[in-house]
Computed example of a mutant assay.
Amino acid sequence: MAPHGKELSEDLKKRIVALHKDGLGYKKIAKTLKLSCSTVAKTIQRFNWTGSTQNRPRHGRPKKLSARAQRHIQRLSLGNRRMSAASIAAEVEGVGGQPVSAQTIRRTLHQIGLHGCRPRRKPLLKMMHKKARKQFAEDKQTKDMDYWNHVLWSDETKINLFGSDGVKRVWRQPGEEYKDKCVLPTVKHGGGSVMVWGCMSAAGTGELQFIEGTMNANMYCDILKQSMIPSLRRLGRRAVFQHDNDPKHTSKTTTALLKKLRVKVMDWPSMSPDLNPIEHLWGILKRKQEECKVSNIHQLRDVVMEEWKRTPVATCEALVNSMPKRVKAVLENDGGHTKY
């Protein structure tokens, strides 16, 4: 016997009708096809009434929200992207008087292509930052790869002993939240970290230097003389040096030193880490460091230096090759944030 409620195929319905037309009764048809008599009877009666074995259209449960209410929900969510589903439900109920659950709001937003996502963390861009970024992109949009290949990119970053400061996720089953593999170990005072200054170009990684204590303009000038200049010279006379607008980088002491050394410095828009390919190289370095399971600062320094030197030239080259796309993305977003 077929399970209760199971939909019959069109072929099976047509066989029922054909057997009935041949003169067989409900019981014989049911026995032949191993169906219940009621199923056979309903199929034949539906055919006699409608002249077809196909089911009539099913309308289902009517929508709780009207088209007007759905448009109102869409306006609220697009007007305030951080408004929760519960807040939108309360707003809709306050206007229309109709109680709506937060789940209904989520389902409605999903139908129009809106989904709750973790917002990307990006620097705060003011109008002057957007204008500067757009101007930079306009000036550089005609530069070919020969220009970008002669740029020495630089930056500072902090590398933690116990991983990054970002949000971590783990795959786990119910009841596994306290297993060793599913927890993120923490230590008092963060476990320690190191600050590093590094540089790179399309030809590969340059010098990497650890920063002891708080870096000031004088310390930065020492780094430039000891680590930046040797890396810059390897790029030839056409080399251009890039660093951001940190006060130590734009101080009178630093500016005077770079002028004395006759270093060509790229004009750089503030709040633009997405335009600096070395930012992605830091991410690669930190992921490599996390895989090594270091337990103290000395091991951390050794691993960081080793992984930095082992970085393939192809990785640096690929990052620099993305510069035309980065510039184009800034222009397309009118100086705003990009995916990089």
Results as ranks from 00 to 15, higher is better:
1 M>D: 00
7 E>H: 11
13 K>Y: 01
14 K>S: 05
18 A>H: 14
27 K>M: 08
30 A>Q: 07
30 A>T: 02
41 A>R: 03
47 F>C: 06
47 F>R: 01
57 P>H: 06
60 G>C: 07
65 L>M: 10
75 R>W: 07
79 G>C: 03
81 R>Y: 05
89 A>I: 10
90 A>I: 11
95 V>F: 05
103 Q>S: 12
106 R>K: 14
116 G>E: 05
116 G>Q: 04
119 P>Y: 09
120 R>N: 07
129 H>I: 13
133 R>A: 06
135 Q>S: 10
135 Q>K: 15
137 A>C: 15
146 D>C: 11
155 D>T: 12
163 G>E: 00
165 D>T: 05
167 V>W: 14
168 K>S: 15
171 W>T: 07
177 E>T: 11
178 Y>T: 11
180 D>G: 08
181 K>S: 11
182 C>D: 10
186 T>L: 14
187 V>L: 01
190 G>V: 13
190 G>K: 12
191 G>F: 09
192 G>K: 05
196 V>C: 13
197 W>D: 12
197 W>E: 15
203 A>W: 02
212 E>M: 10
220 Y>I: 04
221 C>S: 11
226 Q>E: 15
230 P>T: 13
237 R>T: 14
239 A>G: 14
241 F>V: 06
246 D>H: 08
257 L>R: 04
258 L>Y: 01
262 R>K: 15
264 K>I: 00
281 L>V: 15
284 I>V: 09
293 K>D: 12
293 K>N: 11
295 S>G: 01
295 S>L: 02
299 Q>P: 02
303 V>C: 06
305 M>L: 04
306 E>N: 08
307 E>Y: 00
309 K>Q: 15
310 R>M: 02
324 P>D: 11
325 K>E: 04
325 K>V: 01
334 D>L: 05
338 T>K: 05
340 Y>N: 07
